[in-house]
Write a protein that binds this DNA or RNA. Sequence first.
DNA 1: TATATATTTGCAACATTTTTGCAAATATTA
DNA 2: TAATATTTGCAAAAATGTTGCAAATATATA
Lengths: 145, 145
Amino acid sequence: MAIDYSKVKKILSSYGYSWTRPRELVFKAITGGPKTISAVIKLEQGKVDRVSVYRTLQLFEELGIIHRLYLGWKYKFELSDQFIAHHHHLVCNFCAKVIDIEDEQHINSFIKKESDKFDFKPTSHQFEIEGVCSDCSAKQLLVAA
Amino acid sequence: MAIDYSKVKKILSSYGYSWTRPRELVFKAITGGPKTISAVIKLEQGKVDRVSVYRTLQLFEELGIIHRLYLGWKYKFELSDQFIAHHHHLVCNFCAKVIDIEDEQHINSFIKKESDKFDFKPTSHQFEIEGVCSDCSAKQLLVAA
DNA sequence: TATATATTTGCAACATTTTTGCAAATATTA
DNA sequence: TAATATTTGCAAAAATGTTGCAAATATATA
C-alpha cells in the first residue's frame, strides 16, 4: 500500500517548508505506527542523521502533523488526527501492546463542560488507559498458580 | 502548614524501606506541587545528591506514592491519588499554568465500557486537556490587535 | 545501650539522549 | 542555469539518566 504524501506536502509548503528525502523517510517511519525517537533513528540509520530526525520530528509536531503519545514511561510519536481518526489507547503494562479505542461523545462533552467553567479554550486532549491486556492476565494466572 | 508524613512512612515501612532525611526532603518537594526531576534536584541541591533524587523518585513511583504527569513535552511528578484526590488537568500551552479539574463518572464509565470490550483490566488512566487559559487568550487578543 | 547486620547515601565515572554551530549539500526562485 | 534560501550531516557540547562501590546511616538483636 503506497502512502499518500499530498497532505503532508501541502502542510509543509503552506508554511514555506520543502519536501525533502529525510522528511519523507521520517514521515514514512511514523506512518508505520507510533514510534519513539530512538526507534525512528535506528530505522533510518545510515539514511537520515540522528540530528535531522530530532529536527524533523520537532517540526512535524509544531505543524501538527504528529503528536506525542505517552505510554507508561516513554513517549512515542503518532500521526495526528488529520491523518488517522482521533482515538485513545489501552496500554498493557506487561507486553506494551497498544489497543486503539474510539473517541466518545462522553469525552467531548466532559471536556466542554470543564473548560467552560474556567473559560479555557481546549485545543487538544490526551487520554490513555493503562492496565493488563487479556493475553497477559491469562499468563499472570499461570505464573501465580 | 505542617506536612503529615504518617502515610508515606507507613507505605515505606510496609515494604521494608526506611524513612530517611533524603526521602523526606524529596517527598516534601513533591508535596509542594508537581515538579520535574530537575526542579527537585535544583531545589534540594546541596542537601540531597542528584542520584538519590533519581533513586527516590523511582522508588516512590514504584510504591505508588507519586505518579508521572505528562504536560506538553516534559513530565512532572505529582502525589498519587492516595494523597490528593484523583483529578485531571487543563494545561495552558502559553503560560504552562495547570488547572485541576475533578474526575467524573463519565470518565469511569467510559473506561469500563471500552476495557470490557477487549477483556482489558485497567489499573490507571491519564487524561490531560491542553489549550489556552483565560488570561492568555485575553493577552492573545491584544497581540493580534 | 552497644553491637551486628542490612539499607541507604554520595561520589565518581560512565552511558545515553538531546541541542547547537557551522560548512557542505540540496532545493527553490527567477 | 545562476543566485538565493533552506536543509542536512558532522563534530562537539550540554543535559539527562545509570551503575558500582565505599562510607554513612538506619534497624534489629542482644
